[in-house]
Amino acid sequence: MTVTDIRIPDAIKPVDGRFGSGPSKVRPEGVEALSAVSRTFMGTSHRQATVKDHVARLRRGLGEFFSMPDGYEVILSNGGTSAFWEVATFGLVREKAQFAEFGEFGAKFVQAVTDAPFLAEPTVHRAPGGQAAYLTAEAGVDVYATVQNETSTGVAVPVRRVEGADRGALLLTDATSGGGSLDVDVRETDVYYLAPQKALGSDGGIWLALMSPAAIERAFEIKATKRYIPQFLDLVTAIEQSRLEQTYNTPALATVFLAAEQVDWMNAQGGLSWAVKRSAESAAAIYGWADRSSFAEPFVTDPALRSAAVATIDFAEGIDAAQIAKVLRANDVVDTEPYRKLGRNQLRVALYPTVDPSDVTALTTCIDYVVERLS
């Protein structure tokens, strides 16, 4: 029997079979809302109220969702998280940074700072995939950076300031895939940055950051030193434009609108506490199934580190996860493939608030069904 011959009964399939870790599931209601305003919103100037009102809606909604502390601001600009790593390299690291690296995405920020000729060699605490690395106080470090949720491995860590850090040192938290699914007290960090194509259930193309007064002050301080900063990566420009409810260049309008719709929806359900609970229910469903399974197990062995945003599940020798993913995809259950560079015999499943926990349970039933027929 080939993978294309296996048909999963409709009765056991998820209602919505999208489990991508990013781009993630976009709620049909959001797309319908975008369609309803498309003639007055899409293809219009981003410097006019038609668009600026939705940028303001998104910024206001995120502030409410994360219970943003007084003085913090929601800043956004174009380019996604990859661009933000460069933005932070030019505009937030004064001289020396320290990183906690435990996956592919944390490593990319490390590389950006390492390659910058105007910065000192960073200190990097590393841990292998499936484990976590942690920051430690170090004299002379003016920026600490870590990942809340490592998208490539499914490891999540709490957001906490570095005890004993030099006065004025900033903490930057990569919440690209954790923001919106994992609990956080934003006061514990200076920059909490995320992407719209994960828990925010939108498309890609912009970055978003909740920034403390200290982080904003640092950006202006560095700008005043006359350090060369490419205009597209200028954090001060992003701050000033965000205060005007716009971006320096034309943003992806659909992305802004869909993200605003998603944030409004999550706030209406109960905000961050609701979203965290919903993601936790999905996590309990898939990790509980894996713990009971005779052929699958969570890749992250420490339960305290298992992400409630992205789950990675290893399969026993003789069970081909790639084949399982192919069968699932042929049956409209999609984007369960593992992160390509991790190179493991596993599946990766998004647990964002857009994903219904009952669909995660249905996914595990489908996997059991497929494995039985592939054996």
Rank of each mutant, 00 (worst) to 15 (best):
Y193H: 15
V236G: 01
Y192P: 10
K96R: 15
T114K: 15
Q197P: 02
E188F: 14
E73I: 03
F109Y: 14
F109V: 04
N78Y: 09
E121C: 03
A133Y: 11
F102N: 03
A175S: 15
E240T: 02
S38F: 05
W274I: 09
S177M: 01
D302F: 02
E281L: 13
A321C: 08
R344D: 05
V26E: 03
A132H: 10
E95G: 10
K326F: 10
D314E: 13
T237N: 03
A311L: 02
E29T: 04
A97H: 03
A100I: 13
Y369N: 00
T176M: 12
I206L: 04
R218S: 03
G30Y: 13
L182S: 12
G106D: 02
E372K: 11
D203Y: 14
Q323V: 04
T153Y: 11
A238S: 13
P158Y: 15
N331C: 05
T255L: 04
P213V: 07
F65N: 05
G103H: 10
I216V: 13
V327F: 09
L328V: 04
I313P: 06
A311K: 05
G179F: 12
A165H: 03
Q269N: 10
D142C: 02
G288R: 07
A11V: 00
P14V: 01
V143E: 06
L374T: 06
S45P: 11
P117F: 04
A311W: 07
A156H: 07
L58R: 09
S358D: 14
A309R: 00
K277N: 14
T40N: 12
Q48L: 08
A133G: 12
D53Q: 14
Y248W: 12
S177R: 12
A350I: 05
S35H: 13
V159D: 13
G17N: 04
L200A: 10
T365R: 14
S294K: 12
V157F: 12
E217T: 11
G180D: 10
Q148H: 12
E337M: 08
S77E: 10
S21T: 15
G154Q: 02
V113T: 09
A330G: 14
E64S: 10
L76W: 04
R278Q: 13
K25L: 11
A156K: 01
L351M: 03
F295K: 08
N78P: 05
T301C: 01
M42G: 08
Q269G: 03
F232R: 15
S181D: 06
G205N: 01
G204V: 01
R161G: 14
F105H: 15
K223Q: 13
D203L: 12
G80Q: 12
R7Y: 08
D332I: 01
L253T: 07
P357D: 00
E64M: 05
R27M: 09
A139M: 06
Q323Y: 10
L328I: 00
T40H: 14
W265Y: 15
A280C: 00
G318K: 08
S77M: 07
F257E: 02
I367R: 03
T2W: 06
S282N: 07
Q131R: 12
Y193D: 07
R292E: 11
E29Y: 01
A139I: 01
T123R: 01
V141Y: 04
R60M: 00
D174M: 03
W274G: 10
G79D: 07
D115L: 09
A145K: 01
G103K: 08
A120N: 13
E32C: 05
D359F: 11
S202M: 04
S293N: 04
L170Y: 15
G201P: 08
Y228T: 07
G43Y: 10
G201L: 00
F109D: 05
